[in-house]
């Protein structure tokens, strides 16, 4: 029985050392954010921390690179819309 993290309210399993992005892909999730301009779906692209395409909200902090953040049981992951900074909109 592997560990899991919370992704948008459901449990996603992960292996020790696996990144959030890798665990999501392994679980069949292909996209976890939408773009700022046209709300297009995005997930893993480069997979090595360069392209900033796989952004996701981790433990309330937006724009984490899913391909770099190690999955842990206590950090909830939320899919992200746009900048993820709606809190700053005025």
């Amino acid at each position: 029985m592997s560990d899991t993290f919370d992704f948008d309210g459901r449990a996603v399993p992960f292996e020790p050392g696996q990144t959030v992005g890798a665990a999501l892909i392994a679980d069949g999730v292909r996209s976890w954010r939408t773009t700022r301009g046209r709300a297009r779906p995005r997930g893993i692209f480069c997979g090595i921390g360069v392209c900033f395409d796989c952004l996701v909200t981790v433990d309330g902090a937006p724009n984490r690179r899913a391909c770099l953040v190690p999955a842990t049981t206590d950090l909830p992951v939320r899919s992200q819309e746009g900048t993820g900074h709606d809190d700053l909109d005025v």
Partner: peptide, 8 residues
């Protein structure tokens, strides 16, 4: 910075 909403 990371992209921020236009009004910031």
């Amino acid at each position: 910075t990371e992209p921020l909403p236009p009004g910031v």
